[in-house]
């Protein structure tokens, strides 16, 4: 039986990698599938952004957020909550508030 992995399967794999602390590998997987195997979606981006924020890599998370916006993948409440949480974790409360109100 031959089948192709879809957005959900790749999303699950990305989530699994993030859950075991392999955020970098999750990002690599996103890069590998991007546009070739499947179109990345908001869930994949959210998962990696959230994982980066929990690892205190808020700048990387913000870059990924900018990338998804540039690709016209609309961020949702989960994306924003993850980033706001990340800014709070690293003590950048002002950025958290900015994100909450404006960005």
């Amino acid at each position: 039986m031959r089948f192709h992995l879809d957005q959900v399967s790749y999303g699950t794999l990305i989530n699994g990698l993030c859950k075991v602390g392999e955020t970098r590998a999750a990002l690599e997987l996103l890069r590998r599938v991007d546009g070739k195997l499947v179109q990345p979606n908001v869930v994949m981006y959210n998962t990696i952004i959230d994982s980066m924020c929990k690892d205190k890599l808020v700048n990387d998370a913000f870059e990924l957020y900018s990338e998804m916006v540039a690709k016209r993948i609309s961020p949702n409440v989960v994306t924003y909550s993850a980033l706001i949480s990340g800014f709070c974790i690293v003590g950048k409360l002002k950025d958290a508030i900015d994100f909450f109100l404006i960005k």
Partner: peptide
């Protein structure tokens, strides 16, 4: 977020409350 009409939920608000509280 609010300017873009994305409605914050319980989690978003709780994260902000926690952020402020941790800074006193």
């Amino acid at each position: 977020m609010i300017l873009k009409n994305i409605i914050p939920d319980l989690y978003t608000f709780s994260i902000l409350v926690d952020g402020f509280c941790k800074e006193g």
